[in-house]
Every structure is written in C-alpha cells, then in structure tokens.
C-alpha cells in the first residue's frame, strides 16, 4: 500500500512538473506580441495579427485584412490617455495628407467607454476609421503594453515599424512618415 501511495505521489509530482513545462512552453510560443515588435525593430516584417472590430464612427465592423493593398497606420489609443490627446491632431493631419496615397489611418480605441471614445473623436475632429475593443483582446497579439502605440503596416499587412508612445514629437514625426513611405514601397 505504501509503495502504491509513494508511486501515486511521484506520479502526481512528475505530472505537475510536466504540466508546468507545457504551460511555460505555451506562454513562450504564444507571446507573439513581444516577438512582433522585436522582429520589426530588427528589420523583419512580421505579419500583423488580423482582427475584426466594431466601428466607432459608423455601423458594422472593420476587418484589418480588408485594407490589404494600402499602407495602414494603426494607432492604439484611449480617451483617458493623455499622450493620445497630444498626438490626435497630428494623426488626423497624417490621414488628411496621405489618404490619396493609399494610406489609411485606423484608430483602435481600447479599454475605454464607447461614449467617451466618441466624444474624444468629436473633440479632436478625427475623420479616419475608428474601431472599438473594450476588453482589449486585439492588443495581446501586438504586444501593446501602454497607450498610445502605433504600428505602420505595409500593403501586405506586415509590420514595418512599431512606435511606443506618442508619435507627434519632433523626433518621432519624421520616423513615422519615413515608415509610411517604406510601407508604400512594397
């Protein structure tokens, strides 16, 4: 009986260790967001995770992959985020200046109230497409760790460059515009 109990105990212990290893491997394999940003920083062009989210600026949904063939500036924001207020007018300017060049700015509002987001868009006169992700489920795939973050995607939906923080700073604006130009070249 004792040896059977000992064997059962050992089996449970080994099982738990194996389970922990599987969980560790799974978390490492599914940590696509961090990989995506580091891959983009090293000059690769990782595929941006697709999403379908409800539109804030109208009815229906928007699927990211439906914008293939255009360069996309995907801006992750929230109405309670102070740097998001600072960069909003610049993003609207980017949209106005580049919409005729096959560039689409997409605002992804996350972890926010819909009503607050709509007020924000009205206050800053945002006219580019806006989508809503209250729980923030789409952010994991992009490895978003703070607000705002911006991703420039090429015509094939691959990440050309990722920007953590506001993009309206004097040093960041030229980098964003250069990334858009690179995205259009594909």
């Amino acid at each position: 009986m004792a040896s059977r109990a000992r064997l059962a105990g050992q089996g449970v212990a080994v099982g738990l260790v194996v389970l922990l290893f599987i969980l560790l491997a799974w978390s490492l394999l599914t940590d696509e967001g961090g990989d995506l940003k580091s891959a983009a920083a090293s000059g690769e062009r990782p595929q941006a995770p697709d999403f379908t989210l409800e539109r804030l600026d109208g009815d229906g949904d928007l699927q990211l992959s439906s914008l293939r063939g255009k360069a996309v500036v995907l801006n992750v924001w929230a109405s309670w985020c102070i740097p998001c207020k600072d960069e909003a007018p610049f993003l609207e300017q980017v949209w106005q200046d580049n919409r005729d060049r096959d560039v689409v700015v997409v605002g992804l509002d996350a972890k926010d109230f819909r009503a607050d987001a709509r007020k924000f868009a009205k206050r800053f006169g945002l006219t580019f497409p806006l989508v809503y992700d209250g729980p923030g489920d789409a952010l994991d795939g992009y490895g978003v760790t703070g607000f705002p973050e911006t991703f420039v995607l090429d015509r094939e939906g691959r990440v050309v460059e990722a920007f953590a923080g506001a993009v309206d700073g004097d040093d960041v604006r030229p980098r964003l515009l250069a990334a858009i130009n690179r995205a259009l070249e594909t």
């Binding site: 009986m1 004792a2 109990a5 000992r6 059962a8 105990g9 449970v12």
Partner: peptide, 18 residues
C-alpha cells in the same frame, strides 16, 4: 486526498503494519 493517502502510508509504515 493525496495528503490523506500519504499520511495513511506514513502512519502504517511507522506502526510496522506494512
């Protein structure tokens, strides 16, 4: 259940009934 089984095994071993 696991703790109960272990305690049972230990007490039996200690009592020499095994």
């Amino acid at each position: 259940v696991a703790v109960g089984l272990l305690i049972r095994a230990w007490t039996r071993r200690a009592a020499g009934t095994e």
